[in-house]
Computed example of a mutant assay.
Amino acid sequence: MGLEDLTNQAKEFLKSDQAEDISDKLLDGAADLANKVTGDKFSDQVEGARDAADKAVGNE
């Protein structure tokens, strides 16, 4: 298995249902932490960043 094969497998995984579930949980946790640390002062920016990251991983 070459590097190209591994790259293709990684790309396929990142667009899978499993990756979507994992990324949603991680992104939600990170957003919650960021909002807690900042006292929700930047909640709109945090949510925007969370949504942008979510679009890059998974299938939704």
Rank of each mutant, 00 (worst) to 15 (best):
M1V: 14
M1E: 04
G2T: 13
L3A: 14
L3K: 08
E4R: 10
L6K: 06
N8F: 14
A10K: 02
K11C: 03
F13G: 08
F13I: 03
F13L: 08
L14S: 01
L14T: 00
D17W: 04
Q18D: 12
A19K: 01
E20K: 09
S23L: 10
D24C: 00
D24M: 01
D24V: 00
D24R: 09
K25S: 15
L26E: 03
L26D: 03
G29M: 04
D32Y: 01
L33A: 11
L33S: 13
T38R: 11
G39T: 09
G39E: 01
G39Q: 02
D40P: 00
F42I: 06
F42E: 11
S43E: 15
S43G: 00
Q45M: 11
Q45D: 13
Q45R: 11
Q45V: 00
V46F: 07
V46N: 04
E47S: 05
E47A: 10
E47K: 11
G48A: 09
G48V: 14
A49F: 05
A49D: 12
R50N: 13
R50V: 03
R50P: 05
D51Q: 13
D51S: 10
D51I: 14
A52I: 09
A53E: 05
D54K: 15
D54C: 03
K55W: 07
A56W: 08
A56M: 15
A56H: 09
V57H: 02
G58V: 06
N59M: 05
N59V: 14
